[in-house]
């Protein structure tokens, strides 16, 4: 009984945290794109009220099953990512493979974003879907190799162990390339900032173009939720997890997650969305080799420290 209660409060906490992270990301992104403070904070609830009342419109011969299934699956991916983050010593979803699970969840986004574009049976949606996959291949490999670095240094794939292994020198400080590649990947799977081409304005918002009503709401909210969730996973990976003075560990995790979410969303909102071919080449030819070098450096440090 006590276990069931604990699990229920844990799940409610994760849902609440995902909501707060998504709202923070949306407000910060809105500030960065030129809205004033109060307007930016109210942007998300206003959009929510507007889209909930909007009538659903369909396209001709849409693949409704795949379209709706994919759109409504994006938010649960963000929630599961947040559930992987260890607050104090354990996460809601504990396990020895947290790093691999986080990677698997962000891979699911590949399928869902492409299907949101495909399912609408519209040219712009399809263009957005293809853009996303081209970008996904380019950001995912640096992201995967970026995940290798903290796991290698901690000698574990368990997010709680990775967080605990950092001591006073956070991994973000001595693995900056991996940290940057990871954050770029987060922007990639939340389709925001410089990697927002799949939902680009010049293609009538691409994968988002034909969505309406609650379907549009869940996908739009999921982009900010995924940014917040990705930032929250970065806390045990790169920012020392629960470590910090005075305050209890869980508070530090929440604080770091919120700050990183706000900062990342702000930077993403300040940067222009780049065309796919302008991004793919540097991601493959510059960032990927740099991240592999980063892994090599971490490997040498680990072996030398034995």
């Amino acid at each position: 009984m006590a276990e069931a209660l604990e699990a229920t409060t844990g799940a409610a906490g994760v849902l609440l945290l995902t909501f707060v992270l998504a709202w923070t990301a949306s407000a910060s992104y809105a500030v960065a794109t030129g809205r004033s403070g109060g307007d930016a904070v109210l942007h998300a609830p206003r959009e929510m009220a507007r889209l909930l009342r909007q009538r659903r419109r369909d396209t001709i011969s849409a693949d409704r099953l795949l379209w709706r299934l994919a759109g409504w699956s994006l938010l649960p991916v963000a929630v599961l990512l947040v559930a992987l983050v260890p607050l104090e010593d354990a996460a809601l979803l504990t396990g020895s493979l947290g790093v691999v699970w986080a990677n698997t969840l962000d891979i699911l986004v590949w399928a869902f974003v492409w299907l949101v574009g495909w399912g609408a049976n519209s040219v712009v949606g399809l263009v957005g879907g293809y853009r996303f996959l081209a970008l996904a291949l380019a950001y995912e490999l640096p992201l995967m190799f970026a995940l290798v670095a903290p796991a290698l240094a901690a000698g574990s794939l368990d997010l709680a162990v990775v967080a605990g292994a950092q001591g006073s020198l956070w991994y973000a400080a001595w693995m900056p390339v991996a940290f940057v590649a990871y954050l770029l990947g987060v922007l990639g799977f939340s389709v925001l900032g410089p990697l927002a081409a799949p939902a680009g304005r010049e293609s009538a918002e691409g994968v988002l173009a034909e969505l309406s009503g609650p379907d549009a709401l869940v996908v739009r909210a999921a982009r900010y939720a995924l940014l917040g969730a990705g930032a929250a996973v970065a806390v045990p990976l790169f920012l020392g997890g629960a470590s910090g003075p005075w305050l209890p560990g869980a508070v530090w995790v929440l604080l770091k997650a919120l700050l990183l979410t706000a900062a990342l969303a702000w930077v993403a909102g300040r940067l222009p969305a780049l065309r796919v071919h302008r991004l793919v080449e540097p991601l493959w030819t510059v960032l990927l080799p740099l991240v592999v070098l980063q892994d090599l450096v971490v490997g040498i440090v680990v072996v030398a420290g034995r």
Binding site: N103, T104, I107, W110, A111, L133, A136
Partner: peptide, 10 residues
Amino acid sequence: VLMMVMEMAV
């Protein structure tokens, strides 16, 4: 799960 979802997307 990871490899196959990635592979099927491509």
